[in-house]
């Protein structure tokens, strides 16, 4: 792993024992870092040296390391998933940085995402929102034909764009209000736009928004910081679509939705 282009970096890493104790920045040297390493591999190298010295390694979330699981987080030099657009931290390579640079690494900062340890935060608030209504009911019986229900391509594409959300929470991290509306609206849209999502469409949006509010996320001010930082480039239009469904559900629909949001599923 030694090459002539290897870099020496200074890392300012947020260290926090748990949600109850206050955290602080600790400075580490990352030496001999290959520009071809991913950001997470760089942290692996740093952690290896920490373990050798008998110190506690830096905790951070990661899983697939190919940009599809939404597990890695990290607020790097003022950007969720680092300075490059439309990628996750595991897809960020060290060639984005230069020799001698100082890199500040922080966890996602939001009250509904409490720090588990260091850079790892608890994102189960997203799971609870999803469980509140982010599903479709499917009847048992014979397997239906895949193309039985015709869906216009433009709708299918739009629903698929919303469905690319990996639930990483970068939108919450980027938003000045720590709002989760981009995430929730993507989850509402991906089902609400398709025929299969219609039966629960207006209950879904109400249940998911209610859960989002209960978790204590902030409120959208349409600044668009979320859309700019989203690794999957989820569009801000999803939020308007969610609002539209929510207001028509709340103000114009007849069905009783209130009781059904709990105790089911």
């Amino acid at each position: 792993m030694s090459g002539t282009n290897n870099m020496n970096l200074t890392l300012k890493v947020w260290r926090q024992k748990n949600a109850q104790t206050a955290g602080k920045f600790v400075t580490y040297k990352a030496e001999g870092i290959s520009p071809d390493m991913s950001f997470l591999e760089m942290l692996d190298v740093v952690n290896e040296s920490l373990v050798h010295k008998g110190e506690d390694p830096i905790y951070f979330d990661h899983d697939c390391r190919e940009g599809i699981c939404g597990m890695c987080s990290l607020y790097i030099n003022g950007h969720p998933h680092g300075p490059k657009r439309a990628i996750t931290t595991c897809q960020l390579h060290m060639r984005t940085f230069h020799d001698g640079q100082t890199i500040t690494i922080e966890p996602w900062r939001a009250a509904p995402f409490p720090v588990i340890k260091d850079l790892a935060v608890d994102r189960s608030a997203f799971d609870r929102i999803q469980q509140a209504g982010g599903y479709v009911s499917v009847n048992t019986g014979g397997v239906p034909d895949a193309n039985e229900i015709a869906i216009p391509k433009v709708i299918a594409d739009e629903a698929f764009n919303s469905a690319t959300c990996i639930g990483c929470g970068a939108c919450v991290a980027a938003c000045k209000n720590a709002s989760a509306m981009l995430f929730v609206s993507a989850k509402v849209s991906q089902l609400g736009m398709l025929p299969q999502g219609q039966p629960e469409r207006y209950r879904r949006v109400q249940s998911m928004v209610a859960q989002m509010d209960e978790e204590g996320f902030g409120n959208c001010t349409n600044t668009g910081a979320c859309e700019a930082e989203c690794p999957k480039e989820i569009s801000l239009t999803n939020i308007s679509r969610m609002n539209n469904d929510y207001f028509s559900a709340k103000l114009f629909r007849q069905e009783e939705l209130h009781e059904q949001s709990h105790g089911e599923g």
Partner: peptide, 27 residues
């Protein structure tokens, strides 16, 4: 009311905040 709620949603702020695409007026 909304601003107070938004502040509560982020009790600990970021040490480094880069320039974002969001417009000055919107922020």
């Amino acid at each position: 009311i909304l601003t107070i709620k938004n502040r509560k949603a982020r009790p600990v702020g970021y040490a480094v905040q880069a320039k974002s695409d969001a417009s000055w007026s919107s922020k």
